[in-house]
């Protein structure tokens, strides 16, 4: 998929540490064989009660999908299972980026392959954003910078290959397939 390279939006905050992939999409929804349409299961147990009715204490109730495309969450976001259903669900729910002071490895890898940007920032930046819900931010993939109004501009770690693939619409599998001859040589050695 091709990414414009830029996300400009207000934030939506979930000030919770260690949000695991079972919270992002519970195991009961993993019998799907599709990758589309999983937004309705995103944070399901936080949004709905045991009977499937809206929860009055749903922390995502006030989420404005059109204007709040950047999720800000506590540290170690996406820990737990390898389910790629987690970024699929977050994207379908309407998020284009997640800001946290730490991401779990597999979640980060899965997100980058689907165009969901994991933006890792220092604690003080994460805390500022968590203290100011709805704050406008600007994420630029090409320069791997996050601009936070009233706070400043911060570089975030993004491997150049993922950035290149995202902004040029280059598929990582195509890149691997181009190395077929080298893979064959390795297999025969």
């Amino acid at each position: 998929m091709s990414h414009s390279g830029l996300v400009e939006s207000r934030t939506f905050c979930l000030p919770v540490k260690n949000i695991d992939t079972d919270q992002i999409i519970p195991g009961q929804f993993l019998t799907t064989t599709e990758r589309e349409g999983l937004g309705k299961f995103c944070f399901y147990s936080w949004r709905y009660d045991e009977k499937g009715n809206d929860r009055s204490d749903n922390p995502l109730k006030a989420h404005d999908a059109a204007n709040e495309q950047v999720l800000v969450a506590g540290s170690n976001f996406g820990c737990g299972s390898s389910r790629e259903h987690a970024p699929w669900a977050l994207l379908d729910f309407g998020f284009k980026a997640v800001i946290s002071s730490q991401f779990a490895d597999i979640f980060r890898s899965n997100s980058l392959k689907n165009g969901l940007l994991p933006v890792e920032v220092e604690d003080h930046v994460a805390q500022f954003l968590l203290d100011h819900p709805g704050h406008p931010v600007r994420i630029d993939i090409r320069s791997s910078t996050l601009s936070v109004e009233d706070l400043g501009e911060f570089e975030f770690p993004l491997d150049p290959f993922s950035a290149y693939c995202l902004t040029r619409g280059i598929d990582q599998l195509d890149f691997l397939l181009e190395n077929d001859a080298e893979i064959s040589r390795f297999e025969q050695a």
Binding site: S81, S82, E84, L176, D180, I183
Partner: peptide, 30 residues
Amino acid sequence: DSHTATHGAFGALAFGIGTTEVGHVLATQC
């Protein structure tokens, strides 16, 4: 599956991957 680390008990480098990467390995073994 994230519990693939289990196989590391044998001195293998074993780790969990997402579905996109499952496809990468199916297609290229890499």
